[in-house]
Amino acid sequence: MNKLLTVKDLGLKDYKETWEYQEELFQEILNIKIKNRREETTLATPNYFLFVEHPHVYTLGKSGDLDNLLISESKLVEIGATYYKINRGGDITYHGPGQIVGYPILDLENYFTDIHKYLRLLEEMVILTLAEYGVKSERSKGETGVWLDVGTPFARKICALGVRASRWVTMHGFALNVNADLGYFDNMIPCGIKGKAVTSLNVELGKAEIDLEEVKGKLMKHFLALFEAEKI
């Protein structure tokens, strides 16, 4: 089992370009697994973790409802946003500047073969990171992602998750609001869940801006510990 992890920070990058790059890495891993099975070889499969920020974009998961996007195509153009229907699970999500997006492209057979455990560990990575800033976050039963004040009228989501997996290879991932412009969330029903608010770390801390690189460092530290992985 190869637990080595190649980490790449793509900076601010177009959603479609990043999606295509994810697909390339995803297919690379799948091809090695198929070759190993067919030819009875034991080639090691690589693991990747991409950090990225996207320009304003709305993405709809394969089980999502387009009615959860509340604005027209012309309004999308007006606010400088794009829209894509994609092949991850989940409903509608927004990505934009000030949000840390992470795409782990892993062969889970290098770690464990349990998708639910995978999602829970991604949530735990975020929960532990937020705790370092004095923010108490948690899971909400039946709702993937990371939330604050669950079970109260003030429940709000700070991190969305949506993944795809095939032959235990993962893609897509999580989006953590750090310095996000929350106004863009008003144009959709986040994850298709009505009546739930969205927040950002800078809002919770009452600060204009949080150091994104510092947050990425904390996320990676917890990811490596939780997955018993080693960064290369």
Rank of each mutant, 00 (worst) to 15 (best):
L4H: 13
V7E: 08
K8S: 14
L10M: 08
Y21Q: 10
E23W: 10
I29T: 06
I29V: 11
N31R: 14
N31P: 00
K35E: 15
N36F: 06
L43P: 00
A44I: 07
T45Q: 12
P46T: 10
E53H: 00
H56D: 05
Y58H: 12
G61Q: 00
K62V: 13
S63L: 10
D65P: 00
L66C: 06
I71Y: 02
L76P: 03
L76F: 01
G80Q: 07
I86V: 15
N87T: 11
G89C: 01
Q99G: 02
I100Y: 08
I100G: 03
Y103C: 04
P104W: 05
P104K: 06
L106H: 01
L106G: 01
N110Q: 10
Y111L: 05
F112S: 01
F112K: 01
I115D: 03
K117M: 12
L119A: 09
L119G: 04
R120P: 04
L121T: 11
L122K: 00
L122H: 02
E123N: 13
E124W: 09
V126S: 00
V135N: 05
K136I: 12
K136A: 11
S137P: 05
E138V: 12
S140H: 13
T144F: 14
G145L: 04
V146C: 04
L148G: 03
G151E: 03
I158N: 06
A160W: 00
R164V: 02
W168K: 07
L176Y: 12
N177L: 09
N177W: 05
L182P: 04
G183C: 11
Y184P: 09
D186H: 10
N187T: 06
G192L: 08
L205F: 11
G206D: 06
K207V: 15
D211F: 11
L212H: 12
L224D: 02
L224K: 10
L226H: 14
K231I: 10
K231W: 07
I232G: 13
